Structures are given as structure tokens and as C-alpha cells.
Amino acid sequence: HFTSQQLQELEATFQRNRYPDMSTREEIAVWTNLTEARVRVWFKNRRAKWR
């Protein structure tokens, strides 16, 4: 589960860029205190939901 702060950060990034690269995902991981893998999976799932 994600905190509302984490989701806000993830959503804001998603609005700007639906396909963040590795370095962007790592930055998000640092800001949100999540692993890069969790961030990558979140984006994958979010893109699926967005379609």
C-alpha cells in the first residue's frame, strides 16, 4: 500500500511522463522512500489502468 503522499508524487510524475526511465524511477524511489522496482510496477499498472 502507498501513502497519499507517495501516490501524489507518483501521479504528478505520471501526468508529466508515462514512461519514466531508470534514473527518473530511481529519483522517484528516493523521494517516495520506495524501491525502484515498486515504482516500476506502479507505473506499469498505472499505464494499464490509464488505457
Rank of each mutant, 00 (worst) to 15 (best):
H1F: 11
H1T: 11
H1I: 11
H1Q: 13
F2C: 07
F2N: 02
F2Q: 03
T3S: 09
T3Q: 04
S4A: 13
S4P: 14
S4W: 14
S4N: 11
S4T: 12
Q5W: 15
Q5E: 12
Q5Y: 13
Q6M: 07
Q6V: 07
Q6S: 04
Q6D: 00
L7G: 03
L7M: 08
L7S: 05
Q8F: 11
Q8S: 10
Q8V: 10
E9H: 14
E9M: 15
L10Y: 01
L10W: 04
L10F: 02
L10R: 00
E11K: 03
E11W: 05
E11C: 07
E11R: 03
E11I: 05
E11F: 04
A12V: 08
A12S: 10
A12P: 02
T13I: 15
T13E: 15
T13Q: 15
F14C: 04
F14G: 01
F14P: 01
Q15N: 08
Q15K: 11
Q15D: 07
R16H: 10
R16I: 12
R16C: 13
R16W: 10
R18S: 05
R18N: 06
R18F: 06
R18E: 05
Y19R: 05
Y19S: 05
P20T: 01
P20Q: 02
P20W: 04
D21T: 09
D21A: 06
D21Q: 06
S23H: 13
S23L: 12
S23E: 12
S23D: 08
S23P: 10
S23W: 08
S23Q: 14
T24I: 08
T24L: 11
R25T: 04
R25N: 03
R25P: 01
E26I: 14
E27R: 13
I28P: 00
I28T: 02
I28C: 03
A29S: 06
A29T: 01
A29I: 04
V30F: 13
V30T: 12
W31D: 09
T32E: 02
T32Q: 06
T32Y: 08
T32G: 03
T32D: 01
N33A: 07
N33I: 04
N33S: 08
N33D: 09
N33E: 08
N33G: 15
L34E: 01
L34Y: 01
L34V: 07
L34F: 02
L34I: 06
L34K: 04
L34W: 05
L34P: 00
L34H: 03
L34T: 13
L34C: 06
T35K: 03
T35W: 04
T35L: 04
T35V: 04
T35M: 03
E36V: 05
E36I: 05
E36G: 03
E36L: 05
E36M: 05
E36H: 04
A37C: 08
A37S: 11
A37G: 08
A37L: 14
R38P: 01
R38H: 11
V39L: 03
V39F: 03
R40E: 07
R40Y: 07
R40T: 06
R40M: 06
V41W: 14
V41H: 11
V41T: 12
V41P: 00
V41R: 15
W42Q: 03
W42P: 00
F43K: 00
K44H: 09
K44S: 09
N45A: 13
R46E: 06
R46S: 02
R47G: 01
R47K: 02
R47L: 08
R47P: 00
A48K: 14
A48M: 08
A48F: 08
K49H: 09
K49T: 11
K49G: 07
W50S: 08
W50V: 08
R51S: 08
